[in-house]
Nucleic acid binder design. Structure first.
Lengths: 153, 153
DNA sequence: GCAATATAAGTGTATATACACCTTAAGACA
DNA sequence: TGTCTTAAGGTGTATATACACTTATATTGC
């Protein structure tokens, strides 16, 4: 795959954005399928896993960690709160809405981890592990291009 | 970035799905910003660019090319049809809804190409071009893991 | 020719995404 | 202390995504 076509022009089929989105669709569907028995979507699993070691944490701070728009996170929290997996409470600074896992949330996350590991194994093994590491590193570099200075994993 | 943490366990922070989605968010926002003056989103630009050399084409066939769920494409076609950039017509097989660019659609795509090139250049140059090529190749390999046999760019 | 099957596409519903805008609370400072 | 600015968060609106289900048409086998 080259970013230029036969005549040296940029080729829209080699669009970095399109290729990222296509891959994100395929991989998300696969992770969602693995996680189906847990009742969590891949996005929700990642949200809970990112939240777990940081609780309690405010909306803006968690959104930054997830490289997600703050208002997107607000909306993504809704179904998890409705299902009782997370809880929101006012912080010392009453503007901050602190997010925490509930007991159910901790249990759901723990229960989901083996299913997530199966999904991660399926790509790690079939892509050959060094190549997955390289892909993750290159993805972080791509984020760095547009968000310089942030600590991209 | 390693897919395992210090104790050899899988690390959810190294989730392939999460990292793909984070990067897709960042890169999509950047492409959307570049394309803003054209009135097209990155997804819409890619849809038109993928459609252009294949018209007329049915919904299922175009969805496959975009590695997109068929019903997602149906929904994504709506705003483009409403704005008169594409047209849908019954094919010889009356089950097939053939999609084509309108004259306005062709013009909008042509007008948007320089803006898309600016976006693509910004990542190609700052990521160092060989690395972008490698990333695109690795992304195609990742799709191949979950969709074997498909001609991933 | 007709019943069974396969193919193409849309709808209902729910989550995911983010920009523009608004509200509220905290901090700064004359 | 009262105003100005900044920070945290939500809402309105629109697009993006996909599973389960449904409808309509074509094809196949007899």
């Amino acid at each position: 795959m080259s970013t230029r076509n036969e005549t040296g022009q940029r080729d829209p089929a080699a669009c970095a954005c399109l290729n990222l989105r296509k891959t994100a669709r395929v991989v998300t569907q696969a992770y969602d399928a693995h996680l189906r028995p847990t009742g969590l979507r891949a996005t929700q699993f990642s949200l809970l896993a990112t939240l777990a070691p940081r609780q309690p944490v405010g909306v803006t701070q968690l959104a930054e960690k997830l490289v997600m728009d703050r208002t997107t996170l607000t909306r993504n929290l809704r179904p998890l709160e409705k299902r009782g997996l997370i809880r929101m409470a006012a912080g010392a600074d009453s503007r901050v809405h602190e997010i925490s896992l509930t007991e159910e949330g901790r249990a759901a996350l723990q229960a989901a981890i083996p299913y997530w590991e199966n999904a991660q194994n399926s790509i790690a093994e079939r892509l050959a592990e060094p190549r997955l590491d390289r892909l993750l590193t290159d993805l972080a570099a791509a984020r760095e291009v547009f968000r310089p200075g942030y600590r991209h994993g």
